[in-house]
Simulated assay, not measured.
Amino acid sequence: MSSKTTLRVGRLVKAHGLKGAFKLELYTDSPDERFKPGAVLDLQVPDTSPWFGKTVTVKELRYYNQSPVLFLNEAEDRDAADTLVKAILLVNADVEALPAEPDAWYDHQLVGLRVLRGGVEVGKVIRVDHLPAQDCLAIETATGEVLLPFLKIFVPTVDITKGEVTITPPGGLFEELPEN
């Protein structure tokens, strides 16, 4: 039996142009999946907003100068778009469903996993940072937070079922393990 959860997938930053489009701040690493035409999104807005309790439907996601711009069926012009600015976009997702591509996970599936190095638990994944060069796992250790590039060479195994990731970090990134 799968369970559903509400995921934040983006925020409408500001109106863009005159046709009801929005500059979009992405909170998802699969925008083409989350914002495909026809996708219905829940809104997180103040209860005083005319949009409170309503949903919107994606018309199109485009990119202008590498910036995502979202068109919604419900926003036909700039005036309508202005009423939705700062809304958080939400989806109901199966928390156990994996992305279509192999060796891929959603952030919410990685957060909370135990981090093992040489069979010894060294910490826990607290978030995933999507940086320009590559994604990094933020790992809370006994001595503080460590950012580890989320590359196969450093994170050879992710086992969602066991609730753990195995890491082989470069020297000096984590405290040295005691010799057995």
Results as ranks from 00 to 15, higher is better:
residue 1 M to H: 14
residue 2 S to I: 08
residue 3 S to W: 15
residue 4 K to A: 15
residue 5 T to D: 14
residue 7 L to R: 14
residue 10 G to S: 13
residue 12 L to W: 03
residue 13 V to S: 07
residue 15 A to D: 14
residue 15 A to Y: 06
residue 16 H to C: 04
residue 18 L to M: 13
residue 18 L to K: 11
residue 23 K to W: 09
residue 23 K to Y: 08
residue 24 L to K: 02
residue 25 E to D: 09
residue 28 T to K: 06
residue 29 D to Q: 05
residue 29 D to W: 04
residue 30 S to Y: 07
residue 30 S to A: 11
residue 30 S to L: 10
residue 31 P to Y: 12
residue 32 D to C: 09
residue 34 R to W: 10
residue 35 F to P: 12
residue 36 K to C: 13
residue 38 G to D: 06
residue 40 V to C: 09
residue 40 V to K: 13
residue 44 Q to G: 12
residue 44 Q to S: 14
residue 45 V to C: 08
residue 45 V to F: 03
residue 46 P to Q: 11
residue 47 D to A: 14
residue 52 F to S: 13
residue 52 F to A: 15
residue 53 G to C: 12
residue 57 T to F: 00
residue 59 K to W: 03
residue 62 R to D: 14
residue 62 R to A: 14
residue 65 N to H: 15
residue 66 Q to V: 06
residue 68 P to V: 05
residue 68 P to E: 06
residue 68 P to N: 07
residue 68 P to Y: 06
residue 69 V to D: 08
residue 69 V to M: 11
residue 70 L to P: 14
residue 71 F to N: 04
residue 72 L to W: 12
residue 73 N to W: 14
residue 73 N to Y: 15
residue 74 E to P: 05
residue 76 E to A: 13
residue 77 D to R: 03
residue 77 D to N: 15
residue 77 D to P: 07
residue 83 T to C: 11
residue 84 L to T: 08
residue 88 I to K: 12
residue 89 L to M: 06
residue 89 L to P: 05
residue 92 N to Q: 15
residue 97 A to V: 03
residue 99 P to S: 02
residue 100 A to S: 09
residue 102 P to Y: 02
residue 102 P to W: 01
residue 106 Y to H: 12
residue 112 G to N: 06
residue 113 L to P: 01
residue 113 L to R: 08
residue 114 R to K: 15
residue 114 R to I: 08
residue 115 V to F: 02
residue 116 L to K: 07
residue 119 G to D: 00
residue 123 G to N: 02
residue 124 K to P: 00
residue 125 V to Y: 00
residue 126 I to S: 00
residue 127 R to E: 02
residue 130 H to M: 03
residue 132 P to G: 03
residue 134 Q to Y: 04
residue 138 A to M: 12
residue 140 E to D: 15
residue 141 T to C: 06
residue 146 V to D: 02
residue 149 P to K: 01
residue 149 P to T: 01
residue 155 V to K: 02
residue 155 V to P: 01
residue 158 V to C: 02
residue 164 E to M: 10
residue 165 V to K: 01
residue 167 I to L: 05
residue 168 T to W: 03
residue 169 P to W: 02
residue 172 G to M: 05
residue 172 G to Y: 05
residue 174 F to I: 08
residue 174 F to W: 07
residue 175 E to H: 07
